[in-house]
Structure formats: structure tokens, C-alpha cells
Design a protein around this nucleic acid. Structure first.
Length: 278
DNA sequence: CTAGGGTTAGCG
DNA sequence: CGCTAACCCTAG
């Protein structure tokens, strides 16, 4: 009587995936208890989370299976949508230790998901900030961006921001003065403001929230999952309005992961490492 | 508390 | 009717 089969909503699904991405698959009770996701999962039990995760896995792998009755591949890793196979049983997420003076965006113990939707505007905000102050350090720039962009700034945005600043300096769009002060580079040839740098083509790979400061392996893995998800979606979602809505949302978020990939790539190349891509 | 198997309600 | 997804039960 009190159980008319409650279907999972988009928010719940998203919260579950976010929870798994954060705490790891298997920590159902922890995810359910986390105030960050509890607002979406309060009506679901830890067992429900596990079951739902299993269903999602079956849905993803099953679709591939349908086109291929014989299974040459045992498939040892988790489903495409879900991610976090290599996470160790104990507390996994490492990036939570280092903290900068620029803590912010509170979040009153869970009010909304930390979707990292923006990204393309950050460079513009950097120039705006420097336009006003002539010279600023990274903390000031960070504060400015936070003030101007309201909530979207990720918790540890300082690291990718630093990478971007360094890149801009390398492109001679900015110049570094003092120990860690940045200012606009006014002289020199400022002809082509956009060298192909700040305008992205936007292919179609979708992306969800991503954690900055993660290992390259993690980032690549996450990206790979997103691609798989995209393939899955485009081949199946030809009728579901809900899926369409989600897809358009992911398209908007594409910019953020692109920027993330650029930052990571920049960091690797500046460290003198070589990337071999098949 | 979690993983896995079993059961039932909806849907095409 | 068969399948999928939400729900339930239980061993470890």
C-alpha cells in the first residue's frame, strides 16, 4: 500500500553518481548519509542505492551485450556510467588536504550539488579583474572570480586557476611581476587576442562535474567514461525527453571538462613529460 | 553494512 | 507474455 514503486528521478540518479564519484562504489550508507546528497536521497535507503547502481550497470553493459550475444570479454571493470573502479576500500579521495586561504562558497552542509558548469568565462573574468587592479596575486584573482561568478567556483579552484595563469603568461597575454603577482601585458603585439586558445569547437563529448587536481589517470578515465556514456546515449536516446534534457545539460558542461583537459595537458607539457597518444 | 539472489510491479 | 526496474531477503 505504501509502496507503489517509486521510480528514480534524474536528481536522485545524478546524486548517486556524484556520491559514488566522491566516496566510491560500495559506500552506500556513507553516500546516503552525506548531507551533500541526502537532500536527494533521503527517501532512499543504502540498499536502494546499491540496487539502483546495479541496475544502471546492467543497463549500460546490457545494451552492449545485446548487440553481441557471445561475450568474448569477461569485463572486469564497473559500468561505464558509474566510475571508480580503482578506488581503494578505505577513504579514497586524496584531494581534500591542502587548503588555501581562499575558502569560500560555504554550502551550509548540503543545499545543492557542486556542479562545475562554468569554465569558459573564467579567463574573461581574469582579464576583468586585472583590468581594474593592474596587478594582482592569485588569491585576489580568485576572490574576484568568486565574487563575480557567485556559486559555480569549485572548492579547490585555485590549482586550475594557477595553471591557467601560467598558461596565459606563456602565451604572453599576461606577465608575472614580483613573486606571484600577475598583470596585463599591454605592450607587445596584442593583435590576435584569440589565438585559437579561448574559443573551443565543442565536438560533442559530454561531461559531468569533475574534480580538479586529480591525477591524470583519473581524469583520463573519467573522460573515457563520459565518451562511453555519450555513445550509449546517442545510440539509445532517440525518444526519451528526459534523456534529451540531460544531454543538453551535459553539452553545456562540456566546456568545463575541456578546460580541465587543457589545464592538465598544460601541466604535463610544462613538466617536460611526453604524452604518447595512440 | 554490503553483495548477491530472489520477488513483484509496470510497461511494451 | 517477456523484460526491466524497484523492492525484498539473507548470507557473510
Amino acid at each position: 500500500m505504501g509502496n507503489p514503486k517509486q521510480k528514480w528521478t534524474n536528481e536522485e540518479e545524478e546524486a548517486l553518481r556524484a556520491g559514488v564519484a566522491k566516496h566510491g562504489a560500495g559506500k552506500w550508507k556513507l553516500i546516503q548519509k552525506d548531507p551533500e546528497f541526502n537532500q536527494y536521497l533521503h527517501s532512499r535507503s543504502n540498499i536502494d542505492l546499491k540496487d539502483k547502481w546495479r541496475n544502471m550497470a546492467a543497463a549500460v553493459q546490457g545494451s552492449r551485450e545485446k548487440l553481441r550475444p557471445p561475450r568474448p570479454r569477461p569485463v572486469q571493470d564497473v559500468p561505464a556510467v558509474p566510475s571508480v573502479p580503482l578506488q581503494t576500500p578505505t577513504v579514497v579521495p586524496a584531494p581534500v588536504i591542502h587548503e588555501s586561504p581562499a575558502d569560500h562558497v560555504k554550502d551550509e552542509s548540503g543545499k545543492d550539488l557542486p556542479d562545475a558548469k562554468n569554465g569558459p568565462r573564467y579567463t574573461e573574468l581574469i582579464f576583468d579583474a586585472l583590468k581594474d587592479q593592474n596587478a594582482m596575486d592569485i588569491s585576489s584573482i580568485l576572490a574576484y572570480i568568486e565574487k563575480m561568478s557567485d556559486i559555480p567556483v569549485p572548492p579547490n579552484f585555485r590549482k586550475p586557476l594557477g595553471a591557467r595563469l601560467r598558461r596565459l603568461v606563456q602565451q604572453e597575454k599576461l606577465e608575472k611581476v614580483e613573486s606571484s603577482l600577475y598583470r596585463l601585458k599591454t605592450n607587445t603585439v596584442e593583435t590576435n587576442a584569440s589565438n585559437q586558445k579561448d574559443t573551443w569547437p565543442r565536438p560533442h563529448p559530454p561531461a559531468l562535474y569533475t574534480k580538479v587536481g586529480e591525477s591524470l589517470e583519473e581524469a583520463a578515465k573519467t573522460a573515457a567514461y563520459k565518451v562511453v556514456e555519450a555513445e550509449n546515449k546517442s545510440s539509445v536516446a532517440a525518444e526519451a525527453i528526459k534523456e534529451l534534457e540531460k544531454f543538453s545539460k551535459m553539452a553545456e558542461e562540456t566546456d568545463s571538462i575541456l578546460q580541465l583537459a587543457k589545464d592538465i595537458f598544460d601541466r604535463c607539457t610544462t613538466h617536460g613529460e611526453i604524452l604518447l597518444v595512440a
